[in-house]
Design a protein around this nucleic acid. Sequence first.
DNA 1: GTGGGGCTTGATTGCGCTAACCTTGTGTGA
DNA 2: TCACACAAGGTTAGCGCAATCAAGCCCCAC
Lengths: 341, 341
Amino acid sequence: MTSDNKRPLTLRDVSDATGVSEMTVSRVLRNRGDVSEKTRVKVLAAAKELGYVPNKIAGALASNRVNLVAVIIPSLSNMVFPEVLTGINEVLETTALQPVVGVTDYRAEKEEKVLYEMLSWRPSGVIIAGLEHSDAARAMLNAAGIPIVEIMDTDGKPVDAMVGISHRRAGSEMAKAILKAGYRHIGFMGTKMPLDHRARKRFEGFTEALAKEGVEIEDRNFYSGGSALAKGREMTAEMLERSPDLDFLYYSNDMIGAGGLLYLLDQGIDVPGQIGLAGFNDVELLQGLPRKLATMDACRLEIGRKAAEIIAAQLDNPEEEIENRITLTPTISYGDTLKRR
Amino acid sequence: MTSDNKRPLTLRDVSDATGVSEMTVSRVLRNRGDVSEKTRVKVLAAAKELGYVPNKIAGALASNRVNLVAVIIPSLSNMVFPEVLTGINEVLETTALQPVVGVTDYRAEKEEKVLYEMLSWRPSGVIIAGLEHSDAARAMLNAAGIPIVEIMDTDGKPVDAMVGISHRRAGSEMAKAILKAGYRHIGFMGTKMPLDHRARKRFEGFTEALAKEGVEIEDRNFYSGGSALAKGREMTAEMLERSPDLDFLYYSNDMIGAGGLLYLLDQGIDVPGQIGLAGFNDVELLQGLPRKLATMDACRLEIGRKAAEIIAAQLDNPEEEIENRITLTPTISYGDTLKRR
DNA sequence: GTGGGGCTTGATTGCGCTAACCTTGTGTGA
DNA sequence: TCACACAAGGTTAGCGCAATCAAGCCCCAC
């Protein structure tokens, strides 16, 4: 506990110290209404001297305005969501809004809890990852009466606005690229995450596109926990032991893909001649690998930016109709591990 | 904007719907005070049916209690702070407290702004990275009248409590280990971050310990921005070109160290025979590298846990004197790149 | 039957601030 | 010289909820 345990300061204290009314102090601190330069200076000096910090709780209650935007995401421990946050921040910094982040760990019941908790602070908007929510969560979003943007994914119906990419399409595009390059014996590796709907959709899009050409995934492997890079190595070793005839490995994220790549290079296997590889996400990390992994970028920064822009625009002018169903197009990057015919 | 734009619900609405007073509804929703099972059930049903979400702003103002803990960190884009957050979360989840994260980008003026913003919501405690703050920030922390824990670093004087490691000592320990292993021609690579005080302290500790043995750093290189892995490669290539006699490279973080390692292996250089390597942080990523980089773990999870425990304990019982200056001891991990004599 | 104790519920008040209105003082133009 | 506009600042009334205290109710022991 820090030193001086006196009663916390209020507008009243600043008012007493300067001789002007509380209202005038409030006006000065918010830069609102007409205040003479003289009193403005005096009030600011006193507030600073006393160390007064306005109580936003009281302010929010009185004005019925809260400059917070709830941002609800599944995880902070891979690079994808921090980058989305960066995009959100970039835009919100140009406004009076502030993001507040909640993490769900990919669990619907936690999402519900976090959402409830955040809504109880009456934010001005919500940015939430995914289109899949519990009925209760969806009901809360509907009833909140504030702008809602669902991000990352556009394969489904949003509550209000949405910004993302089609993961189904991303999977299918990658499948087409792989087939076009001439690979036919394909293995898949991913996370053991029934609740990661976007990974699931990519997988579905992938297998469907293969099926159209009469190709089936010949082996698959899932992991959970641990270092993704190490897991990528392990799983790849296992899979090639089990299915030595594979000529392509598709990884549900770049990190395990990088692990697989490092393993294959260690083993002296010809990549992409004997075996081709691809991941997903285009993480920065890949730039430093001995060979560049084929991947697809997920437009993370752009998703964050657009989502924040939608919130800001709606708050700015609720009447205005703006584009609020945005599907971005991820670009495939062939790198050095997906040979083109 | 979501559908029904009616006036937001209040306790009053639930009260009207059930026929009991607002106070009783409040009691039910907070599980506070004696309420008969019958009315409890009735009220909960009505609240759920209406989709009522309590207004914490009003609640906080009335009760003068806010169950938020402000967590202020420099960045989310490397793995170190998310892991600290995980530790904080683990502990706070066992309490009624909730973390709220603010990011400073290693800039003092932004730290000040973020702190001011967070304090204006009157949190119950603050966890803030580092011991270096602007005078204004320190004044705010002092005047806040709530538990403050400064984390990561213990080389300095805290405002209140602190939990971390001595980065100066971490640097010096690594220097000793390197010398003991017989290396003498040492290069250093790090981030171009005058404001990362912990990196600076490690560097100082490192050079001082070397100096004691009459050894000086022979070359150094700093980077900013871009993929750390790629930068590690580039800088290492440059440095070895410039100073081919180096026999050890010390990196200020594991990510650039990993880049350097991959580069040296590519070049067929004998690691650790010809050149030894070490990084800092013990990131999970290292597990998947072809060779394990020597490093030092920064006790990130534990720092988060302990910090949260201190906050929780102080709020629980402000009188109780608890250990609030905790210096953890990082353990050095030799991996495969720091040969021992 | 009756007084008292515990359980349950209700009424009042105010948290710190801001929206909306109101008052005062000053300068300006006809 | 006077009316009037407008800038500068004050007054009043809540925002939605929880602390506090008071009141109602029921049941049991004596």
